[in-house]
Nucleic acid binder design. Structure first.
Lengths: 334, 334
DNA sequence: CTGGACTGAGATAACGTTATCCCGAAGGTA
DNA sequence: TACCTTCGGGATAACGTTATCTCAGTCCAG
């Protein structure tokens, strides 16, 4: 008795049913050209042997795998876009298999190359880092890739991104409309593309509105100490900010953590919606991304790219929406 | 010119280098039995053609894919166990590819069967629902599977689960030690195995401690209305609870949302740690699962199962830990 | 010198599918 | 009856790897 029993193959089924290999294949693929009686015999043999087709062989022969890869920063983090991607792909009859890049350039490369070697039909990537040169030969060899959330720097690749500039503008204008004159921005490390784009947009708003710019913008890595000092700096001095715009959901959490009970005294508009937004009093006003649209568009672009590798590259910008919940409507207290 | 250029294969490399196919394979696999000069020529050809091995063919030939599947409830939810699984697998040189089951039995089956047809070496599953009969033929055919978080009901399958009973006991004892006599439990739908196990453990604690049991236990689906009435019921009446144990992280959030400012008046111990736990005042005392141990053990079990399909099934229980943060140390207020 | 052990590299057969051909039987018409 | 078409179904060749042989050489002992 062998330890791991060899799985039955089409040959086994064919022998069991007393037909040719090709006929089994026909039955499995619902080919109409096989007689009813034979088809029944084949199906019986399949059931008897508990035959399961081997997709590896199928994919090898077909050339196509019906599988999309998703290389995201952290699988185990909240990622509504990934959920939308899965759903859209499922609706299109494609399977999405995901892996984490853990914000590590080396790991990202490893993951993407693994997916390429496995000949996934296409890849959805949340790109990290600056150097994506390793993608060049893969793209040349026919890899279909769509970047999400950020573009692939230096490469002409399809991507779908939120309208960060409009989001920041909306947040800023909203606070100004509620009487705020001194608005601070606390954001993530500007080496991250999205963070940089948002910070830059904020600087432009602040400059256009008049008043100090650099003194109101605090960006850098998400570390407890940095956030604490950023909050302190924003709210201190002779002309403290009366409102804060935060650069993403994690920053919002950290800022709220620092503010504690003081969060009622300063107006806040956060970028990115999150579960916590409705946990606090007042609830958090946010600039929400349209996750469903982003995920759906990503799958659309990827399918189009797979269907026609020569089609022109498209970079889609998805609108964002201001969700008023109270924290952004507080009046200035000085 | 063809639209999608055929990727170069080993045959192409062999022709380019003027060697036999087998020699290319040897070079790719770092076989020492190939002369330095030839190896160099082959490597040059590989670089010139931008050759990338096709894992599909490799896996088909080898019989093994070096790939583990993870079928989890929601990819895009916080899931520290999944992260630990990925890391442990990576350390073992295996790739983890994950997909969501979305708490849908039909989808779970679809995902697992897809992974089986792709001949993944093994699968980590967060089982949902009651009927996992579809797994039987797969297991018989040699599928290696490890269940995480909950067992596969009715099937004798490896699994690794947190010590829910000990966790509830610890939480209960902790509150009693801080002077609480009337402790309520608000938990998830008991059709979910984990929820049922925790609720049952709580009932046992309450019964052992004396006093009402059923009146203190509120379980059901996570819906705003239900949580609201559960909280109200727990804190109302002639003998209101002075402390609450919550059944999981989502319940904790919802309960805290309902309590609002009142959260300072009732002691709370939550099951599952989460990011929000340190957002509020006082911070949330929780029974934390050892995610790293769970994920690591799951991979260990899976690898052992793959190596020896005949080994006895093991069901591992991982200890939990009480993390004191303030909310569980509040004195009773009546 | 010659025979055997060793060594590097080439033919070739798998792995489990699908697709291309081809053939034999049935049916219809001249 | 002979011929042409139709159609179900069987050989067999891919798909791109790896593994098992086999076989020329080279080197050294007898």
């Amino acid at each position: 008795m062998t330890r791991r029993p060899r799985r039955p193959t089409m040959v086994d089924v064919a022998r069991e049913a007393g037909v040719a290999l090709r006929t089994v294949s026909r039955v499995v693929n619902d080919d109409a050209t096989v007689g009813a009686e034979l088809a029944e015999r084949v199906r019986a043999a399949i059931a008897a042997l508990d035959y399961r087709p081997d997709e590896r062989a199928r994919h090898l022969r077909l050339g196509v795998t019906g599988t999309l890869g998703a290389a995201v920063r952290q699988l185990s983090h909240v990622n509504p876009v990934l959920r939308a991607v899965e759903r859209a792909a499922r609706a299109a009859g494609l399977m999405v298999l995901a892996a984490s890049t853990e914000d590590d350039e080396v790991l990202e490369r490893h993951v993407v190359e693994s997916m390429c070697r496995r000949r996934f039909d296409g890849i959805i990537l949340e790109p990290i880092g600056e150097d994506h040169g390793y993608l060049l030969p893969e793209l040349a060899a026919g890899l279909s890739l769509v970047a999400v959330d950020r573009p692939v720097l230096g490469l002409d690749v399809d991507c779908v991104i939120s309208d960060n500039v409009a989001g920041i503008r909306t947040a800023f204008a909203h606070l100004v409309a509620h009487g705020h004159d001194r608005v601070a921005y606390i954001g993530d490390d500007e080496r991250i593309y999205t963070a940089h784009e948002r910070a830059t947009a904020f600087r432009a708003c602040a400059a256009a509105h008049g008043g100090p710019v650099d003194a109101m913008v605090h960006t850098g890595r998400i570390e407890p100490g940095r956030i604490t000092s950023a909050v302190r700096a924003a709210l201190a001095g002779p002309a403290p900010a009366t409102a804060i715009v935060t650069g993403n959901a994690s920053i919002s959490v950290e800022v709220l953590r620092r503010l504690g009970a003081d969060s009622r005294k300063v107006a806040i508009v956060g970028f990115d919606d999150s579960e916590l937004a409705t946990l606090l009093r007042p609830d958090l006003t946010v600039v929400a991304q349209d996750d469903t649209a982003i995920g759906g568009t990503a799958i659309d672009l990827l399918r189009a790219r797979i269907a026609d590798p020569a089609r022109p590259v498209s970079r889609v910008t998805v609108p964002v929406e201001l969700v008023r919940r109270g924290s952004g409507e507080l009046p200035p207290i000085s």
